[in-house]
Design a binder for these strands. Structure first.
Lengths: 205, 205
DNA sequence: CAACGCTATTGACGCACGTTCAATACTTTG
DNA sequence: CAAAGTATTGAACGTGCGTCAATAGCGTTG
């Protein structure tokens, strides 16, 4: 809550902006983007509304910055560790993704909803975050092993991989909401096995 | 354009409400829910803002009514015809779904975004529309033939079918945006073949 | 260490849009 | 044709976005 800080605390632009961004992401996890108003944020941060406009220009830019930050967090969490065999690294990324959604359910949900329902800029952020995740399948040492599973880098395969990302997103979200008796390991196995399962039909045509 | 209709045209409640709903759905196809303001609608319909409140109570209820109507349209379009073998009927539904998205791209996109980003009521409408589509797999004469493909009615299977719906939605949307050299028939085959592909891993565990 | 300059920060203003409600004017009825 | 019923309006209010000149904290300088 806004609290009783002394009126007018002067900070350096960098730390002030960082403070506002962090607070924005934290509040974003508990309410929708619409409800994350300039007014709310200013109150919680204990500053005037005008200052937010000084740092973010307008509501859209502020929302963009918050969503970008949240997407960056997700991307960082799922980054490959660089250890182990290529396919094991992919499995590890998927694992950390599932754990991230589990531990950060509300925040992740807000990110999805905000990006899906928001303006063009927000959707772009989310789309490129998702692209960054799946692009890992076609780059580096992983690509060769992946190709053996049907993951050649063609437009059709990319389309299905895009769809698989949507599938994974949906299933993980539903699973966190209600596990339906499925263990975490079973979920992970099912998700990774479904990718070749989706691609298989394509190899015959 | 609001136009030069005579000021104050009195209509029966039913036809007036219907007119406003239809106009709402039409405008909704070309802009976001946020931009579908009470003011915009009133202007386009050539009525006062107050009248909209008379019929829909408030903005949320108006949006709810519009989204519900759009979802009903989609559900009606993809309803099984009742002719042909069970599995053929499913294929037909999928076919009409793809065609609907193709011909109604902007409207469908608006529906998705509005439902995903909007308030709880909107998400419920969309979720139950999707559920209604996939529930067909587990009901009536289809269920028996479907069970042979791994579609037994268990929580785990339902979870994956839910995910398959998200997969299909995503792939069709992307395909309409850019076909990537894939024909409509190839798309339909790939989509229907991917469902057993997704379920296959589950049968071994 | 006091005056100064730079700029982070404020507060008041205007605007757009959602929302309410008493007044108004069609249409029907007796 | 008068009167009742109600579809419709328009003006008023609240809230949250966006702008900007005025203010005040903090480092610098003599």
């Amino acid at each position: 809550m806004g609290h009783m800080t002394s009126p007018r605390t002067r900070m350096s632009p960098d730390s002030r902006r960082e403070q506002l961004l962090e607070l924005g992401v934290r509040l974003f996890a508990t309410r929708s983007l619409e409800d994350l108003s300039i007014e709310t944020l200013a109150e919680e941060a204990g500053i005037s509304r005008g200052l937010l406009y000084h740092y973010f220009g307008n509501k859209q830019e502020f929302h963009t910055a918050v969503v970008q930050r949240a997407a960056d967090d997700l991307f960082a969490v799922t980054a490959p560790t660089g250890e182990g065999a290529p396919l094991e690294q992919l499995a590890g990324s998927l694992e950390r993704y599932v754990d991230y959604v589990t531990e950060n359910y509300h925040g992740y949900l807000s990110l999805l909803r905000g990006a899906a329902g928001g303006h063009e800029g927000l959707r772009e952020i989310y789309e490129s975050a998702r692209a960054a995740l799946t692009d890992r399948l076609f780059e580096g040492p992983v690509a060769e092993e992946a190709a053996a599973l049907g993951l050649t880098d063609t437009p059709a395969v990319r389309l299905l991989v895009h769809g698989w990302a949507a599938f994974t997103e949906d299933v993980v979200l539903e699973w966190v909401r209600d596990a339906r008796g499925i263990s975490r390991d079973e979920l992970l196995l099912t998700l990774s096995a479904s990718l070749p399962g989706i691609l298989a039909p394509l190899r015959q045509a």
